[in-house]
């Protein structure tokens, strides 16, 4: 029938398209950006996303976990697009990059930000391009004025290719002047019990896109939660369940939406859900009091 979702799978991409006469929808999954963390599968309201397990051989990640979207169940709401930490899922409505659910004001957008304080950073010769070099996705390009023998005189321009930015805060930590500020949308905790790690296993290190997990002194993985995106891809690949990721807060735009609360409950935990509801309730109480005060 016309208007049915057409799914096309290529080596690097899965695309779902739905074309009406007056509106076109396109949902694309970039398989290379995807880490198989499974956040999308967790929150999908129609359970249309299926996860496929990874393959860990001799302690190395041979095949990362993947996801697949069922064309018949997907309603093109776009919740997965909003929550994907790696921007692997993208949705276009009539050629414009947006999602149906955000367009209809039934879901917030995550607050993610990367800002460079130009006053702190520009014209300073102390910069050794730490941000550019440390960025795991190479999204920062620093332009400098150099002396004849290649020494950096000063920073002239910093260009951040934001579509590639994961908001991992690695650059913020690397900058000696503290010139970059990054707002990470997901907050939580990550625990790695190195005692459970099998000898020579590096699956988590292989999957971690932000290099928040590195090889420590005793040749066992060690995690820095400051750079962790709390996507829990590492938890998915760990063969011994040595990693535990807990998400407890999500920064998002202010939208009254029960759909968001449901997604939040699935993403984080009952406590976070309750906390958010309390905040919302407090806000609405405040607005009611304000209204009453105005009318008195």
């Amino acid at each position: 029938m016309r208007g049915e979702t057409i799914k096309k799978e290529k080596r690097k991409e899965i695309s779902l398209s739905r074309n009406f006469l007056t509106r076109k929808y396109l949902l694309r999954l970039d398989k290379e950006l995807c880490t198989g963390c499974g956040i999308c599968a967790q929150i999908c309201p129609k359970e249309a996303i299926e996860e496929h397990p990874p393959s860990v051989v001799n302690g190395r990640l041979k095949k990362k976990p993947t996801i697949d979207i069922d064309a018949k169940s997907c309603i093109f709401c776009g919740e997965c697009v909003v929550l994907c930490p790696y921007k692997a899922l993208k949705m276009e409505v009539d050629g414009e990059e947006t999602t149906t659910i955000v367009k209809n004001e039934a879901f917030p957008v995550l607050l993610k930000e990367i800002k460079v304080n130009k006053n702190v950073c520009y014209f300073k010769p102390e910069c050794k391009l730490e941000c550019q070099d440390s960025c795991p996705t190479e999204c920062i390009k620093v332009e400098t004025k150099r002396s004849e023998d290649g020494k950096i005189l000063r920073v002239t321009e910093i260009n951040i290719n934001e579509p590639l930015c994961l908001y991992c805060k690695v650059c913020e930590a690397a900058c000696p002047l503290g010139a970059i500020h990054v707002k990470k949308p997901l907050q939580g905790t990550i625990e790695l019990n190195a005692d459970l790690c099998p000898e020579g296993c590096r699956a988590c290190i292989d999957i971690c896109r932000t290099h928040a997990i590195e090889l420590g002194k005793d040749n066992k993985p060690i995690v820095s939660s400051e750079f962790c995106l709390f996507c829990s891809a590492c938890q998915k690949v760990c063969p011994k369940e040595a990693i535990k990721v807990n998400r407890d807060w999500v920064f998002h735009t202010d939208i009254e939406a029960a759909a968001w609360l449901t997604a939040l409950k699935k993403l984080t935990s009952l406590q976070s859900f309750a906390k958010e509801r309390q905040t919302k309730a407090a806000k609405s109480r405040l607005s009611v009091i304000k209204k009453r005060r105005l009318s008195e």
Partner: peptide
Amino acid sequence: NVCPVEVPNEFEEGLTYRKA
């Protein structure tokens, strides 16, 4: 007007959408 889900409209033979 406020429903955020858009799906194929059977009456319109799939030419446009309707809400859930």
